[in-house]
Amino acid sequence: MSDVGTSTPTGRNDGDGDGDKTVYRGLVRADHHQYWLRDQTEPNLDTLFDNDDPGAHPLVAIDDSRHMACVHTGMYGFDLPLTIEAWTHRPESDLDHWEEAIEFSLLLDDGARVESILSEDGGLDFVLPAPATSSEAASGSFRVRLHATGRQRAEEMEHISLERGDELAEEHMIQIWAAPPEPVLWLKEHLWPAWEPDTSVPRTDFCVETATGQYWLSDYTTGRHAANVTGRGNGIIVPEPGGHMAAIFTGQADSIVEVVRDILPGEPELELDDWEEIAEVGMVFTGPDLGFNFLDESAPPGYEYLPAEPGQSRTYRVRVSVTGRHRRYELAGRAPDEHRHAERHMIQIWPAPEGPQKIWKASG
């Protein structure tokens, strides 16, 4: 039984077969931990991730139209070897080479292909197998057996590029044949290691690097990157009069600050022992988006979600706890290769009625 296809540099080929199957091979340029198997029907993306397959590490999500499947990769992006086998009948399963395998059903029309979500040349064309019966032809239903290996290792590597000389770590294979719809069925699951946080290392949600001695907290209504405040006030956080934006001050003009950010449903317990300075102010945010800006960047990229409806304005408390502002570029007792910086902030935000500024601790 022949199973060889010749790929072009774009990852497309014409396939080769012997009557039972036709095989296509190529590289798919995955993006954002995914690629798509779909036909030309406009997908219902709003429903896609409501239909992740069961499990802590889903392998596929299917939109409500059932004309598109999103395959989850371990790698964030770049070069993923993919084999597609278009079968005239249901093949026997052979899972020895694969760490994961799952079956699901799709409705597919002519023109189905695998594609990258961001790159038109990052896909793989193939011809759907001919249905064996007239009823299968009328239904347009196909069964897909998706195989994967190396997702865990590729997740650790994140980006894999042949042009850069990387070793290919993740591989997928799709077997497809005409068949009536059936439920999603795991054939083989990978035992992913359980992750436990290292409580001896302080948590960091993001870092800010600033040459201004401050960074800024705001909702999307301001349309500005930096807060318009005069003076340093309590020396930790000063909101604008309208309350939609605030300046948060760093100990040095040129700083790298590690930040812990918690958006909470209610007031948290006050933590005094690990922090040298703590101040709390009231602000007004229009939901649901909230962001942190420094220099010309945001940290983390994009916005965070507030407990608010779109367009809803609410009053919030913002508590900023600070340590290490007077220890410039020390590594907070950590090894140099851990890149731990002395200045750390914890920002806690929760809905609350209007109230006065509070200073819980101040540095001498």
Rank of each mutant, 00 (worst) to 15 (best):
P43K: 01
Q252E: 10
T250A: 04
I62V: 15
A226H: 15
E99Y: 00
I256Y: 03
A352D: 14
G364T: 09
R232F: 08
P268A: 06
I248K: 02
F206E: 07
N228F: 03
L272F: 03
D20P: 01
R317H: 07
A247C: 01
E309C: 03
D79N: 14
P310M: 09
A335G: 07
R224L: 11
L82F: 07
D296A: 12
R325K: 14
P351E: 07
Y329A: 11
D273L: 09
A154T: 02
S119V: 12
V322F: 01
A247Y: 04
L45I: 10
Q40D: 15
V127I: 15
E267F: 00
D31I: 08
R143Q: 15
E92Q: 08
E309S: 14
A69Y: 01
H159P: 00
G5I: 02
L185P: 00
P268D: 10
L331P: 00
A246M: 11
Y303C: 12
R327P: 00
W275N: 12
L187T: 04
Q40C: 13
E171A: 08
Q348G: 02
S363Y: 10
L272K: 04
R314G: 09
A178R: 06
V229A: 02
G19M: 11
A332G: 05
G122C: 11
R164M: 05
G26E: 08
G302S: 13
I160Q: 03
I256P: 01
M1G: 14
F142G: 08
D198W: 04
E297Y: 14
R334D: 09
N13S: 15
G242H: 10
D20A: 09
V71R: 03
A178H: 11
R325S: 14
R340V: 08
T204M: 14
A61F: 00
T41D: 10
F142T: 06
D121L: 12
A178Y: 03
D31H: 13
S200R: 15
A30S: 15
Y305A: 15
M283P: 01
P356C: 09
D125A: 13
N293E: 03
G266S: 15
E136T: 06
L106S: 05
V114H: 02
A211M: 07
P239F: 08
D52H: 12
D94T: 04
G150I: 03
Q348R: 15
K361V: 11
V260N: 05
E309L: 15
G242D: 12
R66Y: 02
E156G: 00
L168C: 04
R224W: 06
Y329C: 07
E240D: 08
P54V: 07
D121K: 08
E269R: 14
T8Q: 10
R66K: 10
Y35S: 03
E136Y: 10
R203P: 02
A61Y: 06
I236T: 12
V260L: 12
L124F: 07
I236K: 04
L270D: 05
G26V: 09
Q34E: 15
G324A: 08
Y220S: 14
W192H: 09
W177F: 11
S161H: 11
T149L: 02
A226P: 00
Y24P: 01
L108G: 07
G122A: 12
R12V: 10
S255T: 13
Y24C: 11
V281N: 07
E103Q: 12
D46Y: 01
R261W: 12
I176W: 05
I278C: 03
T10F: 11
W87G: 01
N51A: 13
L59K: 06
Y303N: 14
Y220W: 13
R12Q: 15
R317Y: 02
F294E: 07
W177I: 02
